[in-house]
Structures are given as structure tokens and as C-alpha cells.
């Protein structure tokens, strides 16, 4: 059943509406002074802080363009010059005015959140849990960046010792979700650009930005013909379909095959390894085993 207007064909959408186009648009908006820089808070919570590293890998737009022309980056643990309570000042003082909140990492709820303390304010520990509660409701938009923030990810992998949950589990409001481990810089920057220019982008029923998350990897996989013809790799390093090794491309909605990574030079399948479904809800537990050899053998 078709439940809502499917809009433009996602193929067309993906080829014409890339993050880069949005950035070009931003550039021209800036030239005409119609784009107003907004404040961005980037919280690193219970995770590996790999999404901020991935963001630094963005090229055109790059990090400098982001903080010079798109937003005022108010807070980020990995990059800000201030430390201690002076750093937290920026955060706590923010709650009264307009800002966009990006969160990477899950939220540890064990022991009332004390498994992840991100700072100390007036002598009291500021837990990841408290930080999201404090900043989440008042943000104009909340973007969950990466697997841990969107659905718990690796931080919540069984048996989930720190009792990690997603950002959405803590907040009752709409949370835009950009799963991926890590999140590709374009997925974040493209989403942010859309918010700055047009407001909230078109999301699917699980609040993922449709521009990036509309199609299965399998549907655009350059090795698809091998799948269709039943030609399967039996070890890594081969150039055929890695379905028998455990490829999660057929269940993972994301644009890796056309976008690629790190200045667009490569991606896991081109590296002769299966997709491990890192951009799919349920990663990692539901996407394991990542690599199997005992399913590749013939009778």
C-alpha cells in the first residue's frame, strides 16, 4: 500500500540533490546575505567520539567552512579552546536562546547516568543524560549523529553494560536521525544545510533524511549483477558479490555506493569487504555476524 505521496523519484533525488548542491546554494545565500548563521552545539556523549573526527574529514564543505559560514560552533569537547567550568559556561548559558543541537554517542542511563560524566558544573557532575535533558527540549532542531545517538549502536550492544539508550528515548520531541558508524560528513552537513536554508528536511517514517537514506545499498551496488547471476565470493579480496560472506547491503538503506567515503575515494564494498550494515538500525547486534566463511562453501 502506498501510504503517502512518494515525492520525487529517489534516484533523481540522489543524483541531483547532493550535499554539495545544498552547499552551493548556501554559498549563494551568503553572498546575498540571506543566510543567517545559527548556533550549533555538538555534544559528544557515550560513544567513541568518531563522528566529530568524521566531520573533520568533510571536504567541500569542510570544517572551516562550517564554522566560518554556516554556524557558530558554541560547544564541542574535542575541539574547543576553553576547558573546565569555563567550557561548560558556553553550554549552560545557551539554554535561553536559539540553537541547533547535534548529539553523537548514546546516553548511558546506568546509575542515574553516572557512567558518563561530561563535565562538572558548580561542583556537580553533568552526566550525558542530564545534558541531553537540559539542552534537548529547547533546541530548534535535534540531530542524532551516528549509530549510538540514533539507536544505541555499539554503545548499547548486548549485554549493554552501561544501559545505553538513543537520544530519542530521552526526548519526547522530534529527533532527526542520521545513523551510520560513523556518520558520513556529507550526511550531517547536507542535513544541517537543509535546516539552515529550508527548515526540517523530508524524513522517512523513522526520521531519517530521505535525501541520503532512501535506497538500499543492494539496489545501487556495482556488484549487483554478480548477485543476480549467483556469482559469490568465498573470501575477502574477491571482486564478486559478498552475499555469502554476510553482506548487509540488501537490508541497509544508505547512499554509500554512489557517495563513497573520505573525499569520495573508496567504500567498504569496493575495498572487497561486505557491508556490515552500520547505517541500519540495529547495528551491530542485528547485523552480525559481519563476516562468515562457513556459508560460502559448496556441498
Amino acid at each position: 500500500m502506498i501510504e503517502k505521496n512518494p515525492g520525487i523519484c529517489p534516484m533523481l533525488n540522489a543524483s541531483s540533490g547532493t550535499a554539495k548542491n545544498l552547499i552551493e546554494k548556501i554559498k549563494s545565500e551568503i553572498m546575498r546575505n540571506s543566510l543567517v548563521k545559527r548556533d550549533l552545539i555538538w555534544l559528544e556523549l557515550t560513544g567513541c567520539s568518531g563522528n566529530i573526527i568524521s566531520l573533520l574529514n568533510g571536504s567541500n564543505p569542510d570544517f572551516k567552512f562550517l564554522i566560518t559560514n554556516m554556524v557558530n560552533l558554541i560547544y564541542n569537547n574535542s575541539l574547543m579552546a576553553a576547558e573546565g567550568e569555563a567550557a561548560l559556561d558556553a553550554l549552560v548559558n545557551k539554554t535561553g536562546s536559539d540553537y541547533i543541537l547535534a548529539v553523537e554517542g548514546a546516553i548511558s542511563t546506568k546509575n542515574n547516568g553516572l557512567y558518563n560524566i561530561i563535565g562538572r558544573w558548580k561542583g556537580e557532575p553533568l552526566t550525558a543524560l542530564k545534558a541531553v535533558q537540559l539542552l534537548g527540549d529547547r533546541a530548534s532542531h535535534v540531530i542524532a549523529v551516528g549509530a549510538c545517538a540514533t539507536h544505541g549502536g555499539v554503545s548499547a550492544a548486548r549485554p549493554n553494560p552501561a544501559e545505553c539508550v538513543s537520544v530519542q528515548s530521552i526526548l519526547k520531541r522530534k529527533v532527526i536521525k542520521l545513523p551510520g558508524c560513523p556518520c558520513h560528513p556529507d550526511w550531517f552537513l547536507g542535513t544541517l544545510a537543509h535546516i539552515l536554508l529550508y527548515g526540517e528536511p523530508e524524513l522517512d517514517d523513522r526520521d531519517r533524511h530521505l535525501l541520503f537514506y532512501s535506497m538500499l545499498i543492494h539496489d545501487r551496488c556495482p556488484r549487483r549483477s554478480y548477485f543476480d547471476n549467483g556469482v559469490f565470493a568465498t573470501r575477502l579480496g574477491e571482486k564478486t558479490c559478498m552475499f555469502k560472506l554476510g553482506c548487509r547491503g540488501p537490508v541497509t538503506r544508505i547512499d554509500c555506493p554512489v557517495r563513497q567515503w573520505n573525499s569520495y575515494v573508496n567504500w567498504p564494498i569496493r575495498d572487497d569487504t561486505p557491508c556490515i550494515g552500520c547505517a541500519m538500525f540495529g547495528f551491530p547486534d542485528s547485523m552480525e555476524p559481519f563476516i562468515s566463511y562457513d556459508t560460502t562453501r559448496k556441498r
Binding site: 552475499f243 542485528s286 552480525e288 555476524p289 562468515s292 556459508t295
Partner: peptide, 13 residues
Amino acid sequence: TNNAAWAAATHFG
């Protein structure tokens, strides 16, 4: 066996 969603004979865990 050859269902795309059942790579390596597993499906969402």
C-alpha cells in the same frame, strides 16, 4: 538460501 536479506544465512540477528 539465496534471499538477499538472508546474507550468510542470517537476518537481523
